[in-house]
């Protein structure tokens, strides 16, 4: 018996990054856009998605993948409220989705979609580190969470294309400075688009819908 050292010098995320790139390329060939939706628990991901999907589903074929540690309440809600095909992914205790799990969900969902929303596990830390293979990423930040989230959880805001500030109907009740929040996002990610909306009242949902329509024609 002897002890030897095997050099690996390999990023822990390397295998996942490769799988994610393959998934992204396969989606592009099919003409499907996959959006990774990330937020804290309770930021209103499901409510916002339902409101957005109802608008987009009039002209586009929409699919949804709901990722949670357990339960299928979100998938049941989205399927019932939008009528769109929806699959539930269980992460088996893990705090994030990776490219492998996303690929499984896509196979289950099948082909023929223009746009697929992937509702990631509610968490601002781990989902940011694992590339799911999504075409682009959006973060939902709700008014009650405060303006400092982009400073506290920089990575998820650095890696996203769109920041939706949700629950703007609650602005009168919170010390939430919209411009300060824009600055905090801009400091982390100058390229991210910021759209404040209320899914409850419908305020500014047109702007969000238009952003998606524009994005779908670009890719």
């Amino acid at each position: 018996m002897e002890v030897r050292t095997i050099l690996l010098s390999k990023s822990v995320f390397e295998d996942n990054d490769r799988a994610a790139d393959e998934l992204r390329a396969a989606l592009r060939r099919k003409g499907t856009v996959l959006v990774n939706v990330m937020s804290s628990p309770g930021a209103g991901k499901t409510t916002l998605l339902v409101a957005l999907i109802r608008r987009l589903a009039k002209s586009r074929r929409i699919g949804v993948m709901e990722a949670d540690i357990d339960s299928d309440v979100d998938a049941v809600t989205v399927a019932k409220e939008t009528g769109c095909p929806c699959v539930q992914l269980h992460t088996g205790g893990m705090c994030h989705l990776d490219a492998g799990m996303t690929g499984q969900g896509l196979r289950e969902l099948g082909d023929g979609f223009d746009l697929i929303f992937l509702e990631n596990v509610g968490n601002l830390v781990c989902p940011a580190e694992y590339d799911t293979g999504a075409t682009f990423s959006m973060v939902i930040l709700s008014v009650p969470e405060g303006t400092d989230k982009p400073l506290k959880y920089p990575l998820v805001f650095q890696k996203c294309d769109l920041v939706v500030i949700s629950k703007t109907d609650a602005l009168p009740y919170f010390d939430f400075d919209l411009e300060e929040c824009r600055r905090n996002v801009g400091e982390r990610n100058g390229g991210a688009c910021v759209i404040p909306v209320s899914a409850k009242t419908g305020e500014n949902m047109d702007a969000l819908e238009n952003w998606f329509i524009k994005k779908l024609t670009e890719v």
């Binding site: 002897e2 002890v3 030897r4 050292t5 095997i6 050099l7 690996l8 010098s9 390999k10 822990v12």
Partner: peptide, 9 residues
């Protein structure tokens, strides 16, 4: 990064 592993052969 996983730098290396020391293994018994």
């Amino acid at each position: 990064i996983i730098k290396d592993i020391e293994a018994l052969f």
